[in-house]
Design a protein around this nucleic acid. Structure first.
Lengths: 246, 246
DNA sequence: TAAATATGACTGACCAGTCAGTCAGTATTG
DNA sequence: CAATACTGACTGACTGGTCAGTCATATTTA
């Protein structure tokens, strides 16, 4: 695809000057200051090449999440991502193959680490209600209350257009989570804690309100906010009966 | 990229022929045949200017829904919409101000007519379970089973980027539907059919699985299809107790 | 035939992705 | 330890392609 490009008129000096002025080498915290880099990923005074590069990578991921969440994948501009990350557009391509790879990495790095903790929860032998409530609380705290919520929304939104990503997400996240949940419910059913096997057949019904809440808040929060914690507690009350001792 | 085309070479005949051949005015089912216009909106043999224009408008709306659903708003191309509708691109602009207006019209014309029937259902005095089940069936049949499902998905997907549309959708559709549903549940509660007021406070919990199903099927249908009818029946069993007499 | 409609080539803006060039930081040498 | 050479992360102007929206021209209707 690359044309041979025999000659190329450039003005390297001017460009370089500008950059030198833009980020003085003397400042250890070059990235901070007026740069629109989101906090929490401070590069600090690390001088190592590797650390700096890793910090940049993180900054790009964070910026990309912001832009994708705000505009959607197709409409997000990598120029904006670069600006938000305080980085030149070319730098994005140093760390990621293309726009889609960048998107995949966001999902990969921010969601997968969480699945393990979901899978470990079922180990306990407490009553279903408590285990499920624990899971729900965790979800509300670790997903709904964080930027991961945006990732869920992005998956719901863009997934159909990225079969490979939906595939990855299903097998690495959804399938495992559903299996873990079903395991909990099946054991409860075996112990006679559940009247019937409805929830074992459709563990989806336990989590549906959470997905619903993610969608609702993305669309209608300003008209009618929804308190997910309260909603989920009410839902579990309906499914498992009212909780007697909090 | 623009070739230096000093003179405007056009072949109006060829083009027009094609269209004329594609939808012979004599054929009653002009829309069928090879034209990629989806069925159900047959323009018939109407010769009146107004009818023809209206038919074109419908064809454009249907084609646009297909394209938007398949690619999302930003990535959908109006050239494709035009081709699918069997119309020139300029014609789209005869009927709609711009791409966004076209999107709004899809939602407006295809969803609003349905809300009335949702609002009329609660009139009956049957047991909650039956009324709600009736509504659920209707939803499955009239929305989930039709192209309207795509509209729901589009709203979930694109809504946040179109505040005006989300606003319209909330007030014209969601708010009215939730109110109607809450009315049914409140009456049931007053009659003692519900143990507590949980569902009256959160009618959302009744519909959450439907929204969940729309999202799920859009993403994971190929991995693990979900039978909405069965899912909803199971859900209502959990909420209202098992149905004894079908 | 005049008015209303439809057409599609064209334009201008936009944007993903490229790559020759730069330079801070690291390794090597004297 | 200082001078020198090397490395690769980083830069941003640029290219090639795409696409929403326009408008001069053609077609159809009344």
């Amino acid at each position: 695809m690359n044309g041979p490009k025999p000659k190329r008129q450039r003005k390297p000096q001017a460009t370089t000057r500008q950059r030198a002025a833009g980020r003085p080498a003397s400042a250890a915290t070059g990235d901070a200051g007026s740069a629109p880099v989101p906090p929490g990923l401070a590069a600090d005074a690390v001088t190592g090449r590797a650390q700096k590069a890793a910090a940049r990578r993180q900054a790009i991921l964070a910026a990309a999440l912001d832009e994708f969440a705000a505009r959607g994948f197709a409409a997000a501009r990598l120029d904006d991502v670069a600006e938000r990350a305080g980085v030149a557009k070319g730098t994005i391509y140093v760390h990621f193959a293309d726009k889609e790879a960048l998107f995949q990495e966001i999902v990969r790095t921010m969601v997968v680490p969480l699945v393990a903790s979901v899978e470990s929860a079922p180990a306990s032998d407490l009553p279903v209600r408590q285990v499920v409530e624990h899971l729900a609380d965790m979800f509300v705290r670790e997903v709904y209350g964080t930027r991961r919520r945006e990732i869920i929304r992005l998956m719901l939104t863009e997934g159909p257009r990225f079969p490979a990503l939906a595939d990855f997400y299903y097998h690495e996240v959804v399938e495992r989570a559903v299996a873990a949940l079903r395991h909990v419910l099946a054991r409860a059913h075996a112990r006679g804690e559940l009247e019937d096997d409805t929830l074992v057949r459709f563990p989806h019904l336990v989590v549906a309100p959470i997905i619903f809440a993610v969608v609702w808040s993305g669309l209608f929060e300003r008209f009618s906010p929804l308190d997910v914690s309260v909603l989920m507690r009410a839902h579990l009350d309906l499914l498992f009966g009212k909780e007697s001792a909090p």
